[in-house]
Structures are given as C-alpha cells and as structure tokens.
Design a protein around this nucleic acid. Structure first.
Lengths: 213, 213
DNA sequence: TAGATTGTTAATCGATTAACAATC
DNA sequence: TAGATTGTTAATCGATTAACAATC
C-alpha cells in the first residue's frame, strides 16, 4: 500500500510537472523536484517508484511521460466529481472557491437541511435536501464529500453519508468523526491548524532554542 | 522541543476538556481522552506530560486544573490576534467564518493590494493596503497570518510578510513557500487534500486490499 | 572514459506503543 | 488488600535518508 504521505507528495509533483510541460521543459531530475518541495532526492525517487514509471540514469525523467504515468496512478481520482454537505459560511466559501475555475475538481452539488437553501443555486451550485443525497450519490457515482456541517450535527450527518455510500470525507468540522465503516477521513480543521501556527509563531519570537544551545 | 503532532493533539484535548467543564465533569482519565480521539492512552499520558500537569493514579486528571495547565502551555497563543492577507473568494470566506463568533480566535484586519478593497469593511473586518502591514504588525504585536494569496503572488507576499516581522503563516495558497528565515509555515492546501481524499475514496470502492489477502 | 543520475539496500531517525513498577 | 491508573522505560514500528552498484 502506498503511504499517505507519498500520495500527498505525488499530487504536488503532478502539479509541478504540469507546470514544466506548460513551460516546455522536456526532462527533469529527482534533484529538481526535491529542491522545489524541500525534500531529499532519494525521497522523490522512492515516491516516483510507487507510480511505476522508471527514469533513465543520466537523463532523469521524461516530463511528459512521467506526468502521464502519475495521471494513470490517480486514474480513480481524475475526472471524478465531489459534492459538498453543509452550506454555511464555510460551505458557501468553498463553493465559490471551486466555482472560480482555479481547480480542475468539480463540485457538482451541495446539500443542506435548511429549506431556504434547498432548490436554490448557490455560487453556481444547486442545493438539494440532504435526504436526496443517497439517490444523487448512486446516480452520479460520487465517492467524496466535503463536510462543512456545524460541530453539533457533523457526527450524525457523517453516519448518513456512509449509509449513502460515500467512501471519502474531507472533514472541515471541528469534530473527530467516529465511524467504524470503511471510509477514508481527512480532518481539515482550520481553527486547530491556525492555533498550531499561533503556538509555534509565539514560541518563535523569543528564539528560545538558540538560547538553550 | 514538543513535537508538532503533540501540539496538534493538545489543542484537541483542550477543546474536549472545555466541553467536559461545561458539562460539569470533574475528573477524566487518559483512556477517556484516548477513545475520544482514537489514540492510545499511553499517547495521551505522554502528551499531557509535555504540559507539565501530573494526574493522580487511580483518580486520573482533575479536568479544571488540567485545562488551566494546558491554557498555560498555550500562553503565547491565547488571546493573540491574527490577520488575513489576500481577500479573494477564500479570504472573504475565512473572514466570514471567523466573524461568525464560533471561534475564540480574532481576525483583526485584512490586507490586499486591490484599491477597491482597501478601506472597506469586509465581513466585519477592515481591509488595509498590504503596504500598511508592517506598521500594523508592529503596533498590534501580530505573529500569525492566514495567507490566501493567489498562487502567482504567494511567494512574493510571503517574503514581504517576513520582512514585516511575521513569525507564522497558515498558507492556504497551493504553492510551497521557499523562505529561509525563522518562520513557522503550515501548508493548508485544500485542493491537494481534496485530491488525497478522492484518491483513497477511489481505492476504497473496489476493496482491492481484501482481494489481495 | 569520467561524471552524473538512477533504483535499491541498509542504516538511521523519530514517533508510537507495550509493559510494568509505583501509587492511590 | 485488590484493582485501577499513573509516569516512564524499553521495544516496536514505519518512514526517511545515506550510501552505493548499475547504468547511460
């Protein structure tokens, strides 16, 4: 099984390779990619071996071929659509972010239980009632949901998502979801991460570590 | 030095303890916290030792005292304010999210280089020109910035942030920042994380691992 | 050829956890 | 006391990296 971190890095490499193609670059080296992302060249070579494409000694990697091979690695991801559940402040924000066309990922529907939102088109995305989720997921082969429900409702809604056949959740709510089923959950907790940065930023100001040395 | 992951978990424990206090719970145990967050009790005890508060064998941890001690651990974080740079779709969304009062963290100013935005109050937050950042940071002792600049501008703006004395960046832009200075950077890349979930959700559907066994 | 880069192994590193004496 | 929980050590685990033979 490919480690989670390798997958994360491969997504970044993919972006970078796309850019190299646009810039007309033909070849690249593990060292180039490594310096771009602040990792070691060995790490990059190891990651790339996971996708099954082999470079050539001395001439490195053919940018176009490597990119295609990474696309193939993400074959179950590319072209797939996602839906958003919970059209509050943050949900609406994400809808407008993804409708901006900056991302190649399409958010094809939003769901909420607020009757005022159901039926409306919000940031270019139609909003359905949460009870319609299962049908929509079945019909459109949706695997992935962005969950922006309030903390109090997140757990219940997550259970409903799984019953609807969802296989992956990007969880923006500040609640750890407790789900036994075979679902991939990635917690994306803005407040927690902001506090983390604040902590290390605060620790930074005194340069304690330098004094300790 | 306290590991990054421990800090992240302590922030979650803090939240949980707050809730326990509100619920009138007096004591708790490493096991309780562990099951709540899906980690081992040993892990929790190890994390809590970092904050310096010691539990009692048999009776566990005094919720109120432990909470206070964790607050003390985050003394450089609590009550500090942050600013946001880049008032696009995502930036505006974050402003409205934090102005909603759900978080105890205050976003006290926004910065942009678009003259149409400068001077206005957006989602309850005044927007200044990016050139005013240094003065503001100095005057208000700001350490932490949420960076929501577009990919093309992120690196240049980040350099400017550091020159202004910023010590921590929560980087929402899809670009790895290349900064030599003593700054803490946390990449918070929505598209990348969404793709990651899509990948694992896609791999989930076939239950390949079960077939391979 | 000499020099540079690859794939891969072995060593290293750091974080997690099992285990247990000490304690109430 | 017996049972449960703590703090802490030693072992485990997994991810990262140094090193190097093979290759162009």
């Amino acid at each position: 099984m490919v480690p989670k971190k390798t997958v994360a890095r491969l997504i970044l490499y993919k972006r970078f390779l796309k850019q190299l193609i646009d810039d007309g670059v033909k070849n690249t080296y593990s060292h180039d990619i490594a310096t771009k992302f602040g990792v070691t060249a060995t790490q990059v070579r190891r990651d790339l071996m996971c996708v099954g494409y082999h470079g050539a000694s001395r001439s490195g990697y053919d940018v176009k071929k490597l990119y295609d091979e990474i696309l193939r690695f993400f074959i179950n991801t590319e072209g797939k659509d996602v839906v958003l559940v919970g059209v509050g402040n943050l949900g609406r924000a994400l809808l407008s972010y993804f409708s901006g066309g900056k991302s190649h990922i399409r958010v094809v529907a939003a769901f909420d239980n607020d009757e005022h939102k159901v039926g409306r088109v919000i940031c270019g995305c139609r909003c359905y009632h949460i009870n319609e989720l299962k049908d929509f997921v079945d019909k459109n082969k949706i695997h992935t949901v962005m969950l922006c429900a309030p903390a109090t409702a997140a757990q219940d809604i997550a259970v409903q998502l799984i019953k609807s056949g969802v296989k992956g959740i990007l969880n923006f709510s500040p609640v750890r979801l407790n789900l036994s089923a075979d679902v991939y959950i990635e917690d994306f907790d803005i407040t927690m991460n902001l506090e983390k940065v604040m902590f290390f930023a605060g620790s930074n100001t005194g340069f304690e570590e330098k004094i300790n040395v």
